[in-house]
Design a protein around this nucleic acid. Structure first.
Lengths: 198, 198
DNA sequence: CCTACCGATCGGTAGG
DNA sequence: CCTACCGATCGGTAGG
């Protein structure tokens, strides 16, 4: 008699990854032990190594997949027709969307990536810098054509990135303040603050 | 012959604290060992315990002193005459000032406080909540009297807090972008984004 | 302020 | 997937 036991193995790796992202968010990467993680998914610590080669591979998986999501969104927005202000608005929506949909993973890309070791650390920093540069190019274009106020693009970009960095910590589905409220208010503050009035 | 060796002891504790804040910023509290810290100040690990009772006492000292700086600034601003918008502007300046003057300590209050243990963790969370509530009260007042746009005060407060959270990571004296630039641009973005037009 | 050292816990491996 | 166990490193103490 053959028993089918190979239906769910692809999801076990994902389950561990999700639990790890949660723990990294709550306690940080360094303070999370493989025993904590094992307990969270109902295994013993050594069994984790059947799914990931090391603790760092889990962090790596979270960081690079999440970075890809931001990069894909950015690529789509770059190809979009519309003014720099339109693109900026779309970028703000992208950040809010990812922060509310994938809150546990976002913390990793924000804070825990520094625990990556070489050569992955350098690679991650390069991806991050690339994202920042391409985001900055859109702001620069908006400033040059006079659609955006005359601010340092570097300051504008980091202010935008940062201004949504509390969402993943605070947001949980079912709050009285909805994602729609969040989007309207944050988008309002940043767009009014950046786009030229007259 | 008596040698005077008691001139500088009050500064050794401060030196250790400063080095610890730097390490916590770079590697995080959990990933910083007492041996790392000892090396940074030219001691052996056990000697640190002549100045602090535990690793956590160092973190505690950084977190609570820094929190006090924010609270003192807030108290002064609350007593200030002027509209809610004036007070909001002063609060934004307070955050920029502390972030550029005391960058290494600010990281602790933002990220590493979660490694405090009870009863200090609860105390710290209470202080943080109090600060947030009093900040929010100023925003609420501005919204009610029509000086500020109709945003959720909770969203506004967190957006403001967050929007300056990159400064302590990025700012170093001697950059081509000066604290004056930073203040002008960030204040511009946030005030234009929050204050009613016309 | 140091050397010597403690028990606990860490990430990870061997072997089945 | 587990039990058993590894060397390394942790925060901290004893004793001088």
């Amino acid at each position: 008699m053959t028993t089918i036991t190979t239906i769910e193995p692809p999801s076990k790796r994902a389950e561990i990854r999700e639990a790890a992202a949660q723990l990294f968010r709550d306690k940080g990467y360094a303070a999370t032990s493989m025993r904590d993680l094992a307990e969270a998914v109902g295994l013993k610590a050594p069994s984790i190594y059947n799914h990931f080669a090391s603790k760092e591979e889990i962090l790596r998986s979270i960081c690079f997949d999440n970075a890809q999501r931001f990069l894909n969104g950015l690529s789509q927005i770059e190809r979009m027709p519309g003014s720099a202000a339109d693109k900026l608005r779309a970028l703000i929506r992208l950040h809010i969307l990812i922060a509310t949909e994938d809150a546990t993973s976002v913390i990793a890309i924000n804070d825990e990536w520094r625990h990556l070791t070489e050569p992955y650390l350098s690679r991650f920093v390069a991806i991050r810098r690339e994202y920042e540069q391409r985001f900055k190019a859109i702001v620069e274009q908006g400033v040059q054509c006079g659609k955006l106020r005359n601010v340092h693009p570097h300051i504008a970009v980091h202010t935008i990135f940062s201004s949504m960095r509390w969402l993943h910590d605070w947001y949980k589905p079912g709050k009285s303040i909805t994602p729609t409220d969040i989007e309207r208010d944050i988008e309002g503050i940043l767009m009014e603050g950046l786009v030229c009035g007259e």
